[in-house]
Design a protein around this nucleic acid. Structure first.
Length: 222
DNA sequence: AACCGGGACAACCGCCAGATC
DNA sequence: CGATCTGGCGGTTGTCCCGGT
C-alpha cells in the first residue's frame, strides 16, 4: 500500500496559482530562503502542498528564470543533449541557464518532436525515421507520450527508463546528430560544497559529464 | 458568429533515492 | 539496520487559446 500522501489533500488548494499565492510564496522564500518544503506552505500561510510550492517556485517564480521563446541555439542544444542523455530533463535543464526541466520537457513534446520528425529523425532514438522503431514516434500527438512509456516497461520499472549509460551505449547519436557540442560546465547546485557525498543529481551530472566528455565537447558555451 | 480540433503550457501524480530517525 | 520522511524527477493530464471551417 504505499506511502501516505505528501500532504492532506482535503485542506489544500489545487489548480492554477493566484497572484496572491505567488506573492506569499515569493515573500516567504525571500525572507527565509528555500528550506523545508513540507512545512513551508503552513509557515507561508498557503493552502498548498509543499511539492506544489516547490514546483511553482522552481518553474515560474525563481528570479533567475529566462522565460520567453527558445532560441535556435537552445533548440539545437536540447536536441543534442537529448540524444546523449535521453529524457533526463533536469540534466538538460542544468546546462541551459535560466531554463527549467518542466519547460524543456514541454518544449520538447510540443515543438522539437515535430521538428525532428519533419527532418526525418526519430525523436526517441535520434535515428533516421524508418530505420528502427519509427512507427510509434511518427505520430507527434499527445498519445505518443503514452506509447513512449513502452520504453519504460513494468519489468524494468526502476524509474530510470532511459538509463544514461544505456542510452549512450546504444548510441542514438549516430543517426544524424552532430556531437560536437559547445557547452560549458554544468550549473552548480545551490549549495554544492555542503555535502561531502555526491548527490543523485551530482552523480548523474558526473555521468553525463563523462558522456559529454566522450563526445568531444569543447567548453565555449556559457 | 459559432463550433471544433489541435497546440501550448501549467500543474498534478506517482515513484525513486538519499537523508534522517 | 530497517523504517520513515523528504526532495526531486519524469510522465501525464487539464485547461486555455487560437486558427480553421
Amino acid at each position: 500500500m504505499g506511502r501516505s500522501p505528501c500532504c492532506e489533500k482535503a485542506h489544500t488548494n489545487k489548480g492554477a496559482w493566484t497572484k496572491e499565492e505567488d506573492q506569499r510564496l515569493v515573500a516567504y522564500i525571500k525572507a527565509h530562503g528555500e528550506g523545508c518544503w513540507r512545512s513551508l506552505p503552513k509557515a507561508a500561510g498557503l493552502l498548498r502542498c509543499g511539492k506544489s510550492c516547490r514546483l511553482r517556485w522552481i518553474n515560474y517564480l525563481r528570479p533567475d528564470l529566462k522565460r520567453g521563446n527558445f532560441t535556435e541555439e537552445e533548440d539545437e542544444l536540447i536536441i543534442r543533449f537529448h540524444g546523449l542523455l535521453g529524457n533526463k530533463w533536469s540534466l538538460i535543464a542544468g546546462r541551459l541557464p535560466g531554463r527549467t526541466d518542466n519547460e524543456i520537457k514541454n518544449y520538447w513534446n510540443t515543438h522539437i518532436k515535430r521538428k525532428l520528425i519533419a527532418r526525418g529523425i526519430d525523436p526517441k532514438t535520434h535515428r533516421p525515421l524508418g530505420v528502427s522503431t519509427s512507427a510509434a514516434a511518427a505520430s507527434s500527438h499527445r498519445h505518443d507520450h503514452l506509447s513512449a512509456r513502452s520504453s519504460c516497461s513494468p519489468e524494468t520499472s526502476t524509474g530510470a527508463c532511459h538509463s544514461v549509460n544505456d542510452d549512450s551505449a546504444s548510441a542514438p547519436n549516430d543517426g544524424g546528430i552532430d556531437l560536437n557540442l559547445s557547452i560549458g560546465p554544468p550549473r552548480q547546485p545551490p549549495s554544492p560544497s555542503q555535502s561531502p557525498l555526491p548527490t543523485r543529481q551530482e552523480q548523474a551530472e558526473a555521468t553525463s559529464g563523462e558522456i559529454l566528455g566522450h563526445a568531444n565537447i569543447s567548453s565555449d558555451y556559457t
